[in-house]
């Protein structure tokens, strides 16, 4: 049995961001493994440990430099990496990534494909279910728990009001929430071993996916600062005193009581 996890390198949202002339200036040094994908890798590794899955591999579409993110997943414990290399300046939307991934998976063997529930930077949450549709696979999104019995997965997905327990036959696609687990931090041994693990590289053109005009269906025109929310008043002092003041202000000034 094999689980392939789709992982993405994303800018660290905790790093300072600047916007200049509507463009995002990102510190190219502060790129990380998408937190949701880290949870997906963790989930796959836990299943591997508990159910003797033969292989956990990761696939990433991104520029040369994103390789370090593959290494990170390998250092966590994944067995193998596949790097689909893009040009630095390429910017794809989820639709295009999903098509590329579908092109990749078309002739490959896998039992389950795991994705992150969303990208931490764009919060789109589209790629996983798009990929499932392109491959004609059943899927479930926003998984917060996974269990395996007789080679089939049961996912707990967070729905609007409760958790839905869903049986997902293989082959299938799961998108993982970071609420599922706490991804392990690679140990030094893991980091050292990761260097010797295989990483195949494939160029986008090798996939034979036609990325013509239509395949990127959405474009980002510009970025802007969020209208700043100013800090209001901060009350310090005796609890009774500040409680009384704020309660009154909520009533008379804010009119929300």
């Amino acid at each position: 049995m094999k689980i392939t996890v789709c992982i993405k390198q994303v800018p660290d949202v905790n790093a300072p961001i600047q916007i200049k002339d509507g463009q995002l200036i990102q510190d190219s040094n502060r790129k990380i493994l998408n937190a949701y994908d880290a949870s997906a890798v963790e989930a796959a590794l836990v299943l591997q440990e508990d159910h003797g899955i033969d292989q956990v591999e990761v696939v990433l579409i991104g520029p040369e430099k994103a390789k370090e993110t593959i290494r990170k997943a390998l250092a966590m414990g994944a067995d193998k990496g596949i790097h689909i290399i893009t040009e630095e300046e390429n910017s794809f939307d989820s639709f295009a990534y999903a098509q590329l991934l579908a092109g990749f998976f078309k002739d490959r063997e896998y039992d389950y494909i795991f994705c992150g529930k969303q990208s931490q930077d764009t919060d789109s949450g589209l790629t996983g279910s798009m990929l499932a549709e392109f491959l004609g696979l059943p899927y479930t999104t926003n998984a917060v728990g996974l269990e395996m019995a007789d080679g089939d997965l049961t996912a707990k997905r967070q729905g609007d009001s409760g958790q839905e327990i869903i049986e997902l036959p293989s082959p299938g696609v799961v998108t993982c929430s970071n609420d599922m687990n706490d991804p392990r931090i690679p140990s030094l041994k893991g980091i050292m071993q990761s260097k010797r693990k295989p990483v195949d590289t494939i160029s986008v053109t090798d996939l034979g996916v036609d990325l013509s005009e239509e395949s990127t269906k959405t474009i980002i025109n510009s970025y802007e600062e969020k209208p700043e929310r100013k800090a209001g008043e901060k009350f310090e002092g005796e609890p009774e005193e500040i409680a009384r003041k704020v309660a009154q202000l909520l009533d008379t000034e804010a009119n929300v009581i």
Binding site: F95, A98, D123, G125, M130, A132, T140, T141, D160, T218
Partner: peptide, 23 residues
């Protein structure tokens, strides 16, 4: 935007060859 609509947005867009804008 709900967990239910987000569950199908991508697949539906892929199925209809449609553009998708989330959230």
């Amino acid at each position: 935007s709900t967990e239910s609509s987000k569950d199908i947005l991508g697949a539906l867009a892929a199925n209809r060859d449609a553009a998708a804008l989330a959230d």
